[in-house]
Design a protein around this nucleic acid. Sequence first.
DNA 1: ACGAGCGCCTGTCGGC
DNA 2: TGCCGACAGGCGCTCG
Length: 275
Amino acid sequence: MPELPEVETIRRWLQDGRQGEGGILGCSFTTVEVLWERSLAIPARDVFQQCLAGQTVMQIGRRGKFLLLELTGGWMLFHLRMSGDLRVESQLEPTHPHDRMVFNFSDGRRLVFNDARKFGRVWLVEDPLEITGNLGPEPLDPAFTPHWLYDRLCTFNRRLKPLLLDQTFLAGLGNIYTDEALFHARLHPLTLSSMLSAADAYGLWHAIRQVLQEGIDHHGASIDWVYRGGDFQNYFAVYKQTGRPCQNCGKAIERLVVGQRSTHFCPYCQPVRKK
DNA sequence: ACGAGCGCCTGTCGGC
DNA sequence: TGCCGACAGGCGCTCG
């Protein structure tokens, strides 16, 4: 579900807090409840609960769509997948439907992992690279350059949409931001990566960073019942805009299915590139 | 190398 | 009203 901007938004409020509520830096775990067994990837439940007790949250990071909590001895990783969410609240609050894990803190608050569709996962590991080691670069990192992108696009002969969704190619893009980035770069989602010119690659590089930064600036997108306060959904150019006029040319936005994913684009502004 | 299909899950929405 | 299929922000797996 959440893509890079949504995960980054959650990371920031876990770190800094929001609406007068403090973040969770420096908080120590007392007990942990695992309400849905399969939400826990590794280790086994009893080891997980024993290891976490007494540990303190030192740093909160993000790698692609993974949320990383650095603890006194180890790392806890969250992947929210389609419907996962995290909230911080008093232990006196009533629990919600679909709460899958509850992490109680010694200060009377708790961190709750809620996940209706049960696709999300939690890991407790010594080294986060065990889980995130095969991810591609961070799109907002200086190491992600137009030259790197052009080089890698030429290496493959894949359709742009599935390639950009491939987390080992680039970490953090999901269905929404991929469609938005391709629109702003004026590239058709079915264009083969090896067909792009250096100028195309530069435009794509810029569009990817722009849509992700705008998403973060808007605190992510809130869709359907997964509401986190972000409002980037009001600024979608193509995602879920099928039939509505393109903001550039006025022609109707179209939808097609690529790699079993809903894909939205302007057929006029995003022609397939041929060499 | 690459892509299609499927499994994992629950909830919502539109059509009949 | 009730049922039923399509669809949903993701990803790992097998198979061809």
